[in-house]
Design a binder for these strands. Structure first.
Length: 437
RNA sequence: GCGGCCAUAGCUCAGUUGGUUAGAGCACAAGAUUGUGAUUCUUGGGGUCGCGGGUUCGAGUCCCGUUGGCCGCCCCA
């Protein structure tokens, strides 16, 4: 096994893998455009500070970071959100609101690879800036659903779990947790589904024992699975702010219901998202069978643009990963078959015929048809075999006999019928034969 | 950063208690077949058995290390 290997966790995309990835990108792009989002792109390498400022030092361990030749501390981007905040922030005054942007890019993290996670991975990101209202959540959650349903996935395959960090903070404050304690509780909630009671360990280590009655109320809130339960749980704390928040909830759920998307969405207060920058609604897309990690995640982050030094611009966004999406599609048999067929295969008799064939081949290609021919002289019989193997629809036969008569023989490779047409008619005949399909 | 399993041809794998020149199927290429696609047959290319060291008369096989892969933990954007 001589030579070089790719770096750990980095994937190579051979043509077949690449076409699968392209299929995923195509569906995402199609969905984003249908929803009126504009595509953008940005640098892959960013100043390390951009991420430290946002997420704190502990995130640095996960970053693919290093010092460049100019002594700058840099990091390969682990996510798009800080970058897009900077871009939007820099031109906030000139951009028409709401700002609806999306991108598809490669991201990096420095850690051991495992199922559904690599050091380099592709993500779709969509964000709406400049809209404080829950209408933005409706728009984004609907887009997220389309980004998955576009592959043929249904409500039996995935669901969106909707939660609310704002209500969590409200509730925890009402239970007399201070801000640091509340954040620690949210961390525990994020892990609770996986770890059970063990999840509260870091809380008790930092803030002392958690009283049984408080813990019970936290767990009760975590298990809320409907708007009715949520409303009931918050009943004792009625306030103007709370009723406005619950009105937002109704707006989101009713809006998605009106789009016919209710079956894709469930209320689930057990979701809080790990990232500290989320401020309101948060949501995740999950495989219904539950054996894959989250397909997508997002939420509202109203403070982030300001935090990195720009205007006070509300925002909500999400990201979908290509790796997990690809795994799910494969499990459900929704991976498209790899096709690599030309439209036309030119069978060429020899060097003399090659010149005539080249003229037609080049003209057909210029018109957009995909045309192939043997680069070197190959026996006729072999060429027909090759033509068939490529999956081409038509074979154009440039033999000595045909050219002597001023014609080209056109063979339909699917039904094996043949006819001769004058060379001047080749283009029109091919066009008619192929456009009918 | 930590732990478990694994590594033989492009792919899937076989390889006996350590013993001659490491094999098969698939794939790829050439020919049988100098103007018509199947099937079949023949032939061929392709391996420092992941890499390094050790034990041994002798290592694909046993031991140590290392790199890489898969899976899990941590973390999750």
């Amino acid at each position: 096994m001589a030579g070089f290997q790719s770096l750990p966790g980095f994937r190579e995309f051979f043509p077949e893998d690449f076409s699968r990835r392209q299929h995923i990108f195509r569906i995402w792009r199609q969905a984003a455009r249908a929803y009126g989002f504009q595509e953008y792109d940005a640098p892959v390498l960013e100043p390390l500070e951009l991420y430290k400022a946002k997420s704190g030092d502990e995130i640095e361990a996960q970053l693919f970071s290093f010092t460049d030749k100019g002594d700058r501390d840099v990091a390969l981007r682990p996510e798009m959100t800080p970058t897009v905040c900077r871009m939007v922030g820099a031109k906030a005054g000139a951009l028409k609101r709401p700002i609806k942007w999306f991108s598809i890019g490669e991201f990096y993290r420095y850690e051991r690879a495992q199922k559904g996670r690599l050091r380099a991975f592709n993500q779709f990101n969509a964000d709406i800036f400049g809209e404080v209202g829950a209408e933005a959540e409706i728009e984004l959650i609907a887009l997220l659903i389309q980004c998955l349903a576009g592959f043929g996935l249904t409500q039996d395959d995935f669901s969106i779990r909707l939660s609310d960090r704002d209500l969590w903070f409200f509730y925890l404050e009402a239970l007399a947790f201070d801000d640091a304690q509340a954040r620690s509780i949210l961390t525990a909630i994020d892990r609770y589904e996986k770890m059970g009671d063990e999840a509260f360990k870091s809380y008790t280590e930092a803030h002392g024992a958690l009283a049984d009655d408080k813990k019970a109320r936290v767990l009760a809130f975590l298990k809320i699975r409907s708007l009715a339960e949520l409303t009931a749980a918050l009943q004792p704390f009625a306030s103007e702010k709370l009723s406005a928040r619950l009105a937002d909830w109704r707006k989101v759920l009713h809006g998605l219901a009106a789009m016919g998307l209710s079956d894709f969405v469930s209320v689930d207060l057990g979701v809080v998202r790990g990232l500290a920058y989320y401020t309101g609604f948060v949501f995740e897309a999950f495989d219904r069978k539950g054996d894959l990690r989250a397909l997508a995640g997002g939420g509202r982050y109203n403070d982030l643009v300001k935090k990195i030094g720009y205007a006070d611009l509300p925002a909500v966004g999400f990201a979908i990963g290509a790796v997990t999406t690809g795994l799910l599609l494969e499990q459900r048999g929704l991976t498209p078959t790899f096709v690599n067929a030309p439209d036309i295969y030119a069978v060429i008799g020899g060097e003399a015929e090659r010149a005539a064939a080249f003229a037609d081949i080049c003209a057909l290609r210029a018109a957009g048809w995909r045309v192939e021919y043997p680069l070197k002289d190959v026996a006729f019989g072999k060429q027909f075999k090759l033509a068939s193997e490529t999956g081409a629809k038509l074979a154009l036969i440039y033999g000595g006999e045909e050219l002597a008569k001023g014609v080209v023989k056109i063979r339909d490779l699917s039904d094996r019928s043949e006819r001769e047409v004058p060379r001047t008619d080749v283009f029109a005949t091919v066009r008619d034969a192929l456009s009918g399909q």
